[in-house]
Amino acid sequence: MKIQPFGDSCLLVSFEREISITTNQKVIALFKAIEFKKGIEFLIPAYNSLTIGINQEIWSLHEATIYIREIGKDLESIEPVGNNKYVIPVCYESPFSLDLEEISSILDISKEQLIELHTSRNYRVFMLGFVAGFAYMGPLDVKLESPRKSNPRLKVPSGSVGLAGLQTGIYPTEAPGGWQIIGRTPLEMFSPEREAPTLLNAGDEIRFRAISADEYQIIKLKIETGIFEMEVYDE
């Protein structure tokens, strides 16, 4: 664990230079341990780093460094906290699966195999970024490792599920982007009126479940009428 000043009012804590679940667990453990500490203005957990905004009216960067180094000593012993385990329904059918055809042929697998591979394992939410609520999740099965689109779309529809490298992600709002879009979820990944505006948080775990276009519409309706309940799994 390395701590260094970042700008004149932040600290940057960096862990092993890799994208892995064990390294990201340390990031999230540190995030949870200091989340509500007075004198910390904001936190940005990422794959292998944590950016910490320090209120220097409360303490100096130096004092904060000493405190964080102390907490960091037993990150390993902090039990992984009970994060959410959500099932995210995804419709992999047209018109939602904008790039499914193309990316299956690039990866040289059938569309059915792609969907099977995408839905057959659990993914970790490594971090949120890019736009409010965009969750970077992975790692994907290596057979799904995808190049980004050479011409990014100016508008990717909200709810689109995409692949890029060994990551999978969901566009929480309409945004520009170069991920390969394979389906769409009816869930509201980001909603400013909600008390927790984002559905997912860094450290959560998810799995995808393939749904039909009919079920997509039913879930949409349930969400609109406020009777939808998130499906969770436990293992």
């Binding site: 904001f42 936190l43 957990p45 409010a132 609520g133 965009f134 984002t198 948080n201 860094a202």
Partner: peptide, 11 residues
Amino acid sequence: RNGHQHIGIPV
């Protein structure tokens, strides 16, 4: 708005 960067919301 400070304190929401962890869910991707800029200040």
